[in-house]
Structures are given as structure tokens and as C-alpha cells.
Design a binder for these strands. Structure first.
Length: 276
DNA sequence: GACCAGGCGTCTT
DNA sequence: AAGACGCATGGT
């Protein structure tokens, strides 16, 4: 992996197979969209960013010099995916899932953004998760110079009431969003605590938030805290696991179980009624 | 209309 | 501990 910054344009090469399209639209990120010219637009780290991929070359702008390491980490280019995928591919089922979209990377995204978007995700579909998230940002996020809105801070949401969130059309999830914002704003739940705790205790702390169950908690730990051993399972995934892995996940997969889960999820999503 | 969607809280056995 | 049910909203 190699980075070059020219002006405000960051170029990254030697991507080890990273696929921006597959990674950004596989149901882990909700603030990216396709622009008219084929480029991708996402609001990340407080600014709208333009992203283009041409084979083994990634171009992202605007980026400042002190943001380079942030984005290398964001796109998980500092994780050793050749080694991870080689390990996961020892299993024939996972090998097939990975082969169908080998460029998926589990991104390292903002903790609070993951907490709220995965609360929104419950009993919901991916397009509507994005639509509710967009309304949330327009309503409570800081307007940005380049257009669009930043993701709201916990403080900007804490203290609102459900009536003020009605325009989200998020249904019963509105109250959950408020409880999450309040607990993060008052520090009872924080990224620092979650990063320091053993996985089971971090999960339990997240589940003190109303509306955060085991699935959402594991998604936040995986996508927001970079805890690759966190393994989000909904009802469907539990059923699929019984068929795919009747003896449980092989031991060599456990440290990267979350990544394995994302490849399974994406494969199943693009091949409906495959495991039914 | 019925059914589904990256679930969870609550109530019942 | 495990299952049934409702929850608000929008799409097929």
C-alpha cells in the first residue's frame, strides 16, 4: 500500500484487492452514494468526500496531510486482508462467499454513527436505513461548506423529545435513538470504555441502551470499534449458521468472525433464497 | 391486503 | 430459557 498527497487529492495504490463499490454498498455504510459521473460521494470525518477507484488506484479528495492515516484506517488498508482471507478461505463455504465479492473490506467507521445507524437498521431494509439516516443528518447535523450535513453529535440530539424526531419517520426507533444519544452525551457509554472492555462486557454496556440488543451491539463493536471477533447474528443468520456450520465456526475463523459474517451476509443478500 | 425488512421489549409458557 | 407478539414505516 502506498499513499501520495497532491494538493488535496490523496492517491492510494497497491490495494490488495480492495473494492470500493463492494465495500461501501454491502450494508455496513449508509452515507455514500453514486454521483452522476460514476464517482462516489460520502460524508466522512466531517466533510463531503469524492472517491474514484480505477483498478488498483484509489483517488480521494479533499484530504489534508493529517487525515491520511485516518483514511488508510477507514478503508481498512492497514489490515492484512490477504492473510485474513486466506485463513477464512480454508472453509469451503466461506471460500465461495469470499470469491463472489473478494474486495469487501470491513471499514473502520465512527462509533456514534454506527450506533445510531444500526439502531435504525432494526427490522428495516437497507434503502430506508439510508433515507432515515439522511433525514437525521439534515435535521440535526451541522451544515457543511461543500454541501450536505455532518452526522449529528450526541450532544445535539440529547435532550430532544420524540416529537422533534417525528419527521424522521423512524417509527418506534426514535425513542431508542434519543436514549443512545443521552447515554453517549453523559458519558455512561463511550468509545473509550467499549474499546477497553472485554467483548462480552462491551456488549453488555451497549445493551444498557434501550433498543440495543445483541445484534445491534455486535454491529457497533464490529463496524464502529473494529472488534473483528464480534459476530452479528440475526434470526436469519442463526438459521443459516446451522446449515452452513453445524459444528459451529471453526476455531481459526473466530478472531475474524465478524469479517466472515459480512461476506456471508453479502453473498446471501445478492443470492436470495439460497440457504432457504 | 399480505408479507417482508441487518430486532427488540414485553409478556407468556 | 424459549417462543409469540406488537411495534412504525415503506416497498413489493
Amino acid at each position: 500500500m502506498q499513499t501520495t498527497l497532491r494538493g488535496e487529492c490523496l492517491t492510494i495504490t497497491e490495494l490488495d484487492g480492495f473494492d470500493a463499490d463492494a465495500s461501501l454498498f454491502c450494508g455496513q455504510a449508509f452515507r455514500w452514494s453514486r454521483a452522476e459521473n460514476g464517482a462516489l460521494i460520502g460524508i466522512v470525518h466531517g466533510k463531503p468526500r469524492l472517491l474514484r477507484q480505477d483498478g488498483d488506484r484509489l483517488a480521494l479528495s479533499p484530504v489534508t496531510a493529517d487525515e491520511i492515516s485516518y483514511f488508510v484506517h477507514y478503508f481498512a488498508l492497514d489490515d492484512d486482508y490477504p492473510a485474513i482471507l486466506a485463513r477464512l478461505s480454508r472453509n469451503p463455504v466461506l471460500r465461495r462467499c469470499i470469491a463472489s465479492a473478494p474486495g469487501i473490506r470491513v471499514l473502520h467507521q465512527d462509533f456514534f454513527e454506527m450506533l445510531l445507524t444500526f439502531i435504525i437498521s432494526q427490522n428495516n431494509n437497507i434503502p430506508r436505513i439510508g433515507a432515515i439516516t439522511e433525514r437525521l443528518c439534515c435535521g440535526f447535523g451541522a451544515p457543511l461548506p461543500g454541501g450536505g450535513h455532518a452526522f449529528p453529535t450526541a450532544a445535539s440530539l440529547a435532550g430532544r423529545d420524540e416529537a422533534e424526531l417525528a419527521f424522521l419517520r423512524a417509527g418506534w426507533r426514535a425513542g431508542y435513538l434519543l436514549d443512545a444519544a443521552q447515554k453517549v452525551a453523559d458519558g455512561s457509554v463511550s468509545e473509550e470504555k467499549l474499546a477497553a472492555l472485554p467483548l462480552a462486557e462491551a456488549r453488555a454496556l451497549l445493551m444498557t441502551i434501550r433498543g440495543v440488543g445483541p445484534k445491534v451491539a455486535d454491529c457497533v463493536l464490529l463496524f464502529g470499534l473494529g472488534r473483528r471477533e464480534a459476530f452479528p447474528t440475526d434470526v436469519w443468520m442463526k438459521r443459516a449458521m446451522k446449515t452452513l456450520f453445524p459444528n459451529g465456526l471453526p476455531h481459526y475463523i473466530l478472531p475474524d468472525a465478524g469479517i466472515a459474517q459480512q461476506f456471508i451476509f453479502d453473498y446471501a443478500r445478492r443470492n436470495p433464497n439460497l440457504f432457504t
